[in-house]
């Protein structure tokens, strides 16, 4: 039934049709892919959660030798005002072959060595070590002691004895002034 003209039209069509199809399908696919993003991104922390991502702490009331505990991102954070002896002890232990080698000066801010800021979660199985409150068992090295499986941390929060594999981690923080500390 087809005529010569028909066939010619048909060939012209083939290329234009292909282009149209590819353009339409491609654009549809891109659109669908982009539309997926809001549905994934909604699972990321919401604005109210992010607003609590950093806390500011007034540390003026923390006397030398004392520690306080603040809550940050749902976890405890230890803030310790170390005595010169504690700092010295920590520095002396720098190169005695620690399980997780790290120098004390890497774990504190230069010029503010007396302030030790740690995430208070034992690196073994996630318990909160003792040693912040005044009557607590500070462990064999005068730092912290995790009662769950007996991990001992020193005055730099480094693991010295027990099953924990890593040192207590140091959160991101900054001194906004001499007395205000911003964590996170």
């Amino acid at each position: 039934m087809s005529t010569i003209e028909d066939t010619k039209n048909h060939e012209d069509d083939a290329t234009r049709r292909d282009f149209l199809h590819i353009a339409a399908t491609g654009m549809g696919a891109v659109g669908a892919a982009v539309a997926v993003w809001p549905f994934i991104d909604q699972m990321n922390p919401a604005a109210d959660t992010l607003a609590l991502a950093s806390v500011e702490v007034d540390i003026s009331a923390v006397e030398e030798g004392e520690s306080i505990l603040v809550k940050w991102r749902g976890k405890p954070v230890f803030i310790r005002h170390r005595t010169p002896t504690e700092i010295e002890e920590a520095r002396l232990a720098d190169d005695i072959g620690l399980p997780d080698v790290q120098f004390d000066e890497e774990r504190v801010t230069a010029g503010k060595e007396q302030w030790l800021i740690l995430v208070g979660v034992c690196t073994h199985l996630g318990c909160v070590p003792l040693g912040t409150k005044s009557g607590d068992d500070k462990g064999e090295f005068g730092g912290w002691f995790c009662p769950c499986h007996g991990s001992h941390y020193d005055t730099s929060g480094r693991i010295r004895k027990g099953p924990a594999p890593k040192n207590l981690s140091v959160p991101e923080y900054a001194f906004l002034s001499d007395t205000v500390l911003k964590i996170g």
Binding site: P38, F39, Q42, N44, A46, A47, D48
Partner: peptide, 13 residues
């Protein structure tokens, strides 16, 4: 309201 204001793209969804 939290969905509308704080959740990422919550208002859209």
């Amino acid at each position: 309201e939290r969905i509308m204001r704080d959740v990422n793209y919550g208002w859209l969804i």
